[in-house]
Design a protein around this nucleic acid. Structure first.
Length: 207
DNA sequence: TGCATGATGTTCT
DNA sequence: GAACATCATGCAC
């Protein structure tokens, strides 16, 4: 009974990333593996527009790494960064627009024991899936998941619609951890939610 | 409580 | 060879 609404259809993702992103807040990402099921309610996401967005990995056109974003929407783009972390995006828009939404943080609502096992004993509960690499880790996501379809109710990864988020609970601001297009307010999060990762000061380039 | 820094490897110039 | 959609730790206050 704890399950939220139905699995989001492909049409949900067939819109610009900055439209899809805020609507993903409150929705629940589930991964199912032999180890068990983990479900995370999204509290923080970021939109990346593709080739028109200098901050996007797809900015310079398709590469072996980013070609999933140039494919059909409703798939997951998983990338490895900083030599040790996996991060996950949901591909949006249309086949010829490489837009995606980065999953930045969430609240573990099911499978807490398994998420804890994956993340180790140290992090407090609210930080099990706080931050894009932590979220991916809690869900057990890695390169093996790259390109998978998230729109099938029977798939190993899927996204369920959550309760609608009221406007006052929605917070927008600049994206985190990037050096280009830093002023574009495409970070979306739930106000006052303890699982949202703190904004960190950007390095002052050449100050 | 908050900032500075090291870890660690893939991707692109 | 440099940059990178990050995280945890350590030290200062």
């Amino acid at each position: 009974m704890g399950r939220p609404g139905r699995v989001l259809p492909r049409s949900f993702y067939a819109r610009p990333a900055d439209v899809v992103a805020p609507e993903l807040l409150g929705c629940v990402v589930e991964t199912e593996t032999p180890e068990g099921l983990v479900a995370v309610r999204l509290t923080e996401v970021e939109a990346y527009a593709g080739e028109d967005d200098p901050a996007s990995h797809a900015w310079r056109g398709p590469t072996p790494r980013t070609e999933v974003m140039f494919g059909p929407q409703g798939h997951v783009y998983v990338y490895f960064t900083y030599g040790m972390h996996w991060c996950a995006n949901l591909v949006c828009a249309s086949d010829d627009v490489a837009a995606a939404v980065l999953l930045r943080a969430g609240e573990v609502v099911e499978g807490g024991a398994l998420a804890r096992e994956r993340r180790g004993p140290k992090p407090p509960l609210r930080r099990l899936a706080s931050g894009p690499a932590n979220l991916a880790s809690a869900l057990g996501l890695d390169g093996a998941w790259h390109g998978r379809d998230v729109t099938h109710a029977t798939g190993a990864i899927r996204v369920r619609r959550g309760p609608a988020v009221a406007a006052p609970e929605l917070l927008t601001g600049p994206r985190v951890g990037i050096t280009r297009a830093v002023d574009v307010p495409w970070r979306f999060s739930l106000r006052d939610d303890p699982t949202v990762s703190p904004p960190r000061p950007r390095p002052v380039a050449g100050a």
